[in-house]
Design a protein around this nucleic acid. Structure first.
Length: 288
DNA sequence: CCTGCCGCCTGCGCGC
DNA sequence: TGCGCGCAGGCGGCAG
């Protein structure tokens, strides 16, 4: 799944493929690709045609393109399976294509599960991001990210710590994979009430969040089920270094105990029953 | 405001 | 061999 390291890998791959190029034509191959777009498909195409891409930016798992028209923003979210690839005959699940005013291949947005989206937006009034993502918190790779306010806000939360890690309005960029990885590294049970964790424990946890995502970025991200690849089509190598995600039933790499897979908020969660035991302060919810 | 939960999708792998 | 079903999950919206 594309989380922060994967989306950043994609952003870096998009830069040389898009910056300085002028859009000549946009083809919408599947209507769901634009489902978060406010205007019509025709207006979407018209707004982008003739515009030159100047920058590719990111916050959390959101990407956006900036243009020579400073009022125009094209936001992209990869969802679960979105990919940007140079247009080629063998691209599968192509949902949208951008052709440029040159002879090079265009850019295809491909998305098997169609949870991804592309849409036009404008700048938010108060923060330098598209208005549709002004509620998304800073991610740990952002130069303006500050840990102390995040720790203090986390301590006010009555939800399980894993839910807090996945809350994109608290800290952005973390998804199921890196939540499980950082909780395993920190030896914290995912259902531990966020407010029950001490400041030093939260500091350690968020340090592990930053570490594991930094290591994953250095490996080109995590390709788990073939759904995520970088813009050049390469798989990320970090899946081989995962300690928790996808390792249910396998031996804990720290203590050897068999890892357990549990249900958490309609998704899967993997932990070591010995390293991450059930805490005393559990939020009121079924522990399955 | 805070929290929990639903539904949107497709392809794969499993069991019968 | 073939079919049906469960699973994977980010996020917006909505109910309580």
């Amino acid at each position: 799944m594309p989380e922060l390291p994967e989306v950043e890998t994609v952003r870096q791959g998009l830069e040389p493929l898009t910056i300085g190029r002028t859009i000549a034509q946009v083809s919408v191959k599947h209507p769901r690709a634009l489902r978060r777009n406010a205007g019509s498909t025709a207006a979407f195409k018209k707004s982008l045609t003739g515009k030159k891409i100047q920058k590719v930016s990111r916050r959390g798992k959101y990407l956006w393109f900036e243009f020579d028209d400073s009022h125009l923003l094209l936001v992209a979210h990869l969802g679960l399976s979105g990919q940007f690839r140079p247009t080629a005959k063998n691209v599968r699940h192509e949902r949208l294509r951008i052709n440029f005013a040159d002879d090079l291949p265009g850019l295809s947005f491909c998305d098997q599960r169609t949870f991804g989206a592309l849409y036009l937006d404008e700048w938010a009034a108060t923060t330098p991001v598209p208005s549709s993502i002004s509620h998304i918190a800073l991610d740990p790779f952002d130069s303006a990210f500050e840990l102390d306010p995040v720790i203090e806000r986390t301590r006010t939360k009555q939800v399980p710590i894993k839910a807090a890690l996945l809350d994109q309005t608290l800290i952005s960029g973390v998804g199921n994979i890196y939540a499980d990885e950082s909780l395993w590294r920190s030896k914290i049970h995912p259902l531990t009430r966020a407010s029950a964790l001490s400041r030093p424990r939260l500091r350690e946890l968020f340090q592990n969040v930053n570490d594991v995502m930094s290591e994953a970025l250095g490996s080109g991200g995590t390709t788990f089920d073939g759904l995520y690849v970088s813009v050049n089509g390469e798989s990320g190598a970090f899946s081989q270094r995962l300690d928790a995600y996808g390792r249910g039933g396998q031996a804990c790499r720290r203590c050897g105990k068999k890892m357990v897979r549990e249900k958490f908020a309609n998704r899967s969660s993997v932990r070591c029953p010995k390293c991450q035991p059930v805490p005393k302060s559990m939020p009121r919810r079924r522990a399955s």
